[in-house]
Amino acid sequence: MKRLHVDPVTLDALREFGNIGAGHAATALSTLLSGRVKMSVTDARLCPFSEIVEVVGGGETIVAAVFIRIFGTISGNMFVLMSLPSVDRLLERLLPAPSHVSEYMELEQSAIAEVGNILSGAYVAAISDLCGMSLNQSVPAVAIDMAASLLDIGLMMSGDEENQAILISTSLVHDGNNIDAYFFLLPDLDGTEVLLDILRGKIRHG
């Protein structure tokens, strides 16, 4: 039976890993939006399912999510979650005539997907450089709904028998625009062990 354990040293390495990824993503976003982007929070830990949805304000909070599947040395799921006001602010910067309808149309959806793609791409590149892994990412998929309903597909592949998963989450704030973007990296259960092994190796060899 599989049960994950993470010691404090590995946890620090995981947090560092999140910082580096977020740093790259912040640079990518600042180029896209031509403004300063600040990375504000990084959370990296072994987390029960119930707490993962609390990070974005509870399971029923309506969010825009970009889902990307990662495969290569490790496989896993990556989500970029944004609050709807943040999405509106992003779209104002990205699209010539933002629509003020209640539902996002195809153009808005593909703009959201592109932002998710750029952010996750930066994150994935940083991680693969850091760990010397080769990683690829799928085409992004976008959906807007309750946070818990969007994240459950990610948890299915990540959770151990105790229903815990490795969570690496980051919040990015675009100065003056307050764009909150949360990253969730949820490695598959097998991927988690590989990732932790690589991290432990890094710690030992400096």
């Binding site: 309903s149 969007l150 459950d152």
Partner: peptide, 9 residues
């Protein structure tokens, strides 16, 4: 009995 935010579950 309630459960919030069912997706594929």
């Amino acid at each position: 009995l309630m459960t919030a935010g069912l997706g594929s579950c």
